[in-house]
């Protein structure tokens, strides 16, 4: 595994006086896939949003490639290009076609030429099986398709780090698979990813490392097999138990 890409030190985050993240530290190496799991409201999504500076923080620091993210707001656009983020609700731009959704940022932010950007966009769409939808508008796509486009829209910026915030939580069950397959493919390519998810089977398959978050801090972390089969802490055991059902009828 490569050099250190992301370092979070003693992060402290409050919402209106209520502590959401408390003295949280973690590091992520290049090529590493870390999956964050934990009960709802434990601060998982907030953590991702802090990494992308969509939330102000009240203490601690976050370094991306050695540069502190929250230090200078003028540097943010520059830093955010290195971080791709995919949201639960896709957030495609409804007034633009799929192709324009994908090429908007490379052309506007990175000043790439139209042909160059469109060629790469089509190649990426091909890879997620949506090349034939380039001319369509977001409203013509299913949830799973929209989410795959959203992933492509982030990828085209060539980010060093990808953040996935419960990207399958808003999808109908039969569409979850097509999106998770894309994520697995990305992991195979050796991308660095920080993933928040409720899909435990998927977490087990994709992760190099599981981070169990509860009450604003990392309670337990380890390799997926260790965490899922032999959770050390009582809180993690209780959390994992909520995913299993006892048979009630013989």
């Amino acid at each position: 595994m490569g050099r250190e890409l992301l370092r979070i030190e003693h992060l402290h985050k409050e919402f209106e006086g209520k502590t959401v993240l408390d003295d949280l530290s973690l590091t992520l190496r290049e090529g590493e896939v870390a999956v964050i799991v934990g009960p709802s409201g434990c601060g998982k999504s907030t953590l991702l949003r802090c990494v992308n500076a969509l939330e102000p923080v009240q203490g601690g620091s976050i370094f991306l490639d050695g540069e502190e993210i929250h230090a200078d707001p003028r540097k943010l656009p520059q830093l955010r290009q290195k971080v791709g983020m995919v949201f639960q609700s896709y957030e495609l731009f409804p007034h633009k076609s799929i192709l324009d959704n994908i090429t908007l940022a490379p052309r506007m932010v990175q000043k790439r030429g139209r042909e160059d950007a469109e060629a790469e966009a089509l190649a990426l769409l091909e890879r997620v099986g949506l090349a034939d939808r380039a001319k369509d508008y977001p409203r013509q796509l299913s949830g799973g398709q929209k989410q795959r486009v959203a992933i492509v829209r982030s990828l085209i910026m060539h980010p060093a780090l990808m953040l996935f915030d419960e990207v399958t939580a808003a999808l109908d069950p039969e569409m979850v698979r097509e999106v998770l397959d894309v994520l697995l493919d990305l992991a195979k390519q050796g991308r660095t990813m920080l993933i928040v998810t409720h899909e435990m089977q998927f977490a087990r398959a994709v992760a190099d490392r599981i981070l169990f978050l509860d009450d604003g801090g990392i309670v337990e972390e380890g390799r997926p097999l260790d965490f899922f089969d032999h959770p050390k802490t009582e809180r993690a055991q209780r959390f994992l138990n909520t995913f299993t059902f006892e048979t009630v009828k013989e």
Binding site: N52, P77, R80, Q81, M85, E91, M108, M157
Partner: peptide
């Protein structure tokens, strides 16, 4: 969140 998704793509 539309604004946020645009910002997270590196837009000013």
């Amino acid at each position: 969140i539309q604004l946020e998704s645009a910002l997270s793509l590196g837009m000013t």
